[in-house]
Design a protein around this nucleic acid. Sequence first.
DNA 1: TATGAATGAGAGTTCATTCAT
DNA 2: TATGAATGAACTCTCATTCAT
Lengths: 211, 211, 211, 211
Amino acid sequence: MAEINRRERKKIFSQKAIVESAVKLFAQKGYQETTVADIMSEADLGIGTFYNYFQSKEDILKHLLFQIIVETNDKFEELQKESRLAGETLREMFLFTAEILDSKRFVLPLFLSAAHKGGFKEHSMEPSKDMSETERPASMPKKMTFKHIFDQIIKAGQASGEFRQDIPAEIITEMFHSVFQAASFSSIQISFLANIRYKLILIMDGIILKK
Amino acid sequence: MAEINRRERKKIFSQKAIVESAVKLFAQKGYQETTVADIMSEADLGIGTFYNYFQSKEDILKHLLFQIIVETNDKFEELQKESRLAGETLREMFLFTAEILDSKRFVLPLFLSAAHKGGFKEHSMEPSKDMSETERPASMPKKMTFKHIFDQIIKAGQASGEFRQDIPAEIITEMFHSVFQAASFSSIQISFLANIRYKLILIMDGIILKK
Amino acid sequence: MAEINRRERKKIFSQKAIVESAVKLFAQKGYQETTVADIMSEADLGIGTFYNYFQSKEDILKHLLFQIIVETNDKFEELQKESRLAGETLREMFLFTAEILDSKRFVLPLFLSAAHKGGFKEHSMEPSKDMSETERPASMPKKMTFKHIFDQIIKAGQASGEFRQDIPAEIITEMFHSVFQAASFSSIQISFLANIRYKLILIMDGIILKK
Amino acid sequence: MAEINRRERKKIFSQKAIVESAVKLFAQKGYQETTVADIMSEADLGIGTFYNYFQSKEDILKHLLFQIIVETNDKFEELQKESRLAGETLREMFLFTAEILDSKRFVLPLFLSAAHKGGFKEHSMEPSKDMSETERPASMPKKMTFKHIFDQIIKAGQASGEFRQDIPAEIITEMFHSVFQAASFSSIQISFLANIRYKLILIMDGIILKK
DNA sequence: TATGAATGAGAGTTCATTCAT
DNA sequence: TATGAATGAACTCTCATTCAT
């Protein structure tokens, strides 16, 4: 019925409002410093409503991180289908990831502090309840983390002789990773993407073997 | 008097115990998760005693960060006196900093989250009350932050033609900075310093101009 | 009309489903620990529907207690019609009550805590709205509580010389009452009814005058 | 020092104030209905202070129950030393227990509801932190619960031929137990102890074998 | 009549900070 | 200088109840 649809639409609207408020406030003040009350006040909804959509404050965080992982995996799958040089794939993937993180900069300190206190691990990420619209088809066996994706590309490049082999792929992956982090909190007066691009050049120059 | 000296020694002893406990616990559990009660219990002192030495929980953090800055500045001054190639200075400074951070890894997420929420800025750092023993002589004009130090070395290298000039010095500085961050939270099974050294090679290869 | 009948039947069906779910869950988890949402989920109905049948969560409890009182009164009336010795009536009534409570054990702690905090009193019990099908005919002057019923039987026994008279009837009534309570929470490995029967023997031996 | 003593005395005073307020309010309104804020307001102390003395709201309950068990065990030990008939011991123990419960009537519904939802068991009771003044010497091997104590007395009476043997000791124990419960919530206009005494007569008459 | 998303008062608990000793 | 009991604002989370559909 239209009535059911309307209700459903309203529900999705509320969920979206909550997520957007959370993203905004996490970005502005950080996760720890943002209270559930803050989020719901920003979303113009009652506090209790939060718990109709997410099980806990940590749950919405997981939701957000999971979303990012999903988007990244989609892009990676897409890039895999076209066959290119590892360098190109790496470049594309890097810039795509940069864009996502640019819009959700708050996640990085969370990844960091989570890693630090051994809290939720990047790979134990589960979708929160009621994520049907972003849920993966069962066909996709497992979500890959940033690390897995970049590792894979770099190893392919090393195997094909495109990239230097005297530095472990994991180390290079970590460098890309850290570039995102640094750029997220950069105080240099250039844009996030310009920042990222410079560093991309630097690392690429450091790893591509010229014949 | 001996009496006064004893008191003085005891005072310094307590302060040291507090700082060491704080460092230990911040490293173990993170800043947010460590309570003042935790610190003082570890230091085997009463809770109230904390506030004889630091104005607030945040204050001891500033103190720790300030200490790091002081040590770094000392090293930089020392390196300045010997005249070397920028590349060598950079390398030395980088490895020295790595060592300090290796022993105080907890500071990095704090720098990040602090930078993020616009809390205490790296350059607004003030010594906490009663720091006589670590305080700089008035002769030293200003403490330089990591950023300032690396910027200066890199700019010198660019000016002398040792380093490439098509990438802003600030960007390169940030890369070094981010290497520390990433290595602090690395899950790769190699030591912090080995990790750092690989990345140092990578960046150096990316910036040094070969003739 | 058939239409009205259907609606009527559906209405009764929903009410029954709610009551049964409530009984089941109250018995399983206790009253406090059972939420309205739990009940309606068990009944496979929407939360809001609950409030079409009961005014509040407490209301359904009153309803359940009222039902028990009604059943007990019916039995008592029936026993009154046959004329027997007080001892036999007491025995019958006791075992009948035991059976009811056996199936609704959760009510006893409620009686207790209700009595305790002076909440709804056993005798202020009112039928909840819309109880037409269980409602008593106006002809029945008043519902009698457990206490009234047992009191009456025991006083009759004392008057006829069957039971000892040196102990107030109310006290004996209370003993029967407490036997139910204790048996409800017994951790002894025998059945509720076996437990009850042993105690019946004990009390009967204590009150029946042998000539 | 006197100063330490004063502090210590004040601390004990606060603990006592909290415990007394809790007892009063639990008795008045029940455990569930009493909030920590209520208790501390009654005790004229800040809310946070509660958590300097007890780990949680449930903790103070355990503390109170533990106290009762300790007192009961002491009495039992004492009675054991004097050698009497089981009937006398039972009578003494019963009346002593009645007195304790008379002053802390609120505990019974708690025992009940705890038993019901399988929460803390009577025998898993642990002293709460900082109970030095009521703590048992290590010499006392184990606290016995009400049930254990009464069971032991009744079995002794059955073994010596004082009590009837056709009814399991556990059942008789439970009857005593239930008498406390019922008397705690009695609405009969006689005192708790008078109530108890009548029932004691009834049960004794039911179990003592007359030759 | 049936629904379930929205609500917000109120619960238990934490912890940086104060202050009388 | 050292102490630690006292504090209460602020937090996360629960749930009976409402109301627009």
